[in-house]
Amino acid sequence: MTTAAPTLGQPTRLSRSRGLASRFLVFATSQEFVLLLVVVLLFAVVGNTNPRYLAERNVLNIFNGNAYIAVAAVGMTMVIISRNIDISVGSLIGVLGTVSGSLAINGYPIWSSWLVPILLGGVVGAVIGFMVAYLRIPSIVVTLGLLSILKGGLITVTNGAWITDMPDTYFLAQMRTPEISLLGINIPAIPSPIVIMIVLTLLAALWMRYSPTGRAIYAVGGNAEAARLSGISEKRIIMTVFIINGLCVGIAAVLWATQLSIIQSTVPAGLELQVITSAVVGGVSIMGGVGTTIGAMLAAILLSAINSALVFINVSPYWFRAVVGVLILITVLTDLLRRRRTQA
């Protein structure tokens, strides 16, 4: 986490004054492009052995399946870029999802059962941010403690009772866009989690690239000292990052809770690792201060696609985790090699 990295800021800056060809080269060697390539390759190979893999339904399911993880990974991306970490996301998703379901079955308006968990997530994020930025407790310690508190607290309060019988209009994640026919092309009904995932990811990517605060996150993560010298308030940035992260976790929790007719009011095991893995495979934090939310989203989709592919091509499910581990290593290594080449 604390590897002193001499590389600074966005690599794309190098290319600004160069020609189209070299711009393309930079794009073609970016983590996002590599991931896109891997996803396409995976679709091609598995689709070749079993065409049903490429059926509209399965592709939508692959995108939909990890959408809530991709949403949480948006926040995680910022957290990791700022040289922090949040390992309490899984527990927080469990708690906020339970809050959402409880509101819905206790007669509160549906919009409040969607909105309250998101705001609550922001509040929890602010608390974490305050402890990290102002009380100077390392984020891994704060979130490790919070993970225990949320996990144990949730069971204490709910006794593990499942939440069922939500009103019909509650299931946000099961809603779909209307089918549109545009210029003779039929656009199928897209599940709402996919729409939310894409919109949120793009908004975050643009914000991080073009707004002063967004750029400051990279600066804080890349070289906190330099950032401080150039007048950026590190504390304020870290607060901001954790609040945004909390809001993202809140949205992810609502998507998580509204996709099925039962809310298992416990903490989903290992969810935080999936979120962190998505961010990391997406190219975040190799050197600290680098990475985008688009990469994280593609990584979340890739993980979902692999999970589906393993079922499709009859690979023993015993090996899933080993495959994921090798995958993380390979993406990280190619990323390192690529960086070395572009620097040379």
Partner: peptide
Amino acid sequence: LETVEAQEDNVLSFTQATTLINKYG
């Protein structure tokens, strides 16, 4: 046909069942 693992996790169970449906049609 086959057996898939899904822990004691309802979201994962849903995903695995959906994948089976898509795979075998």
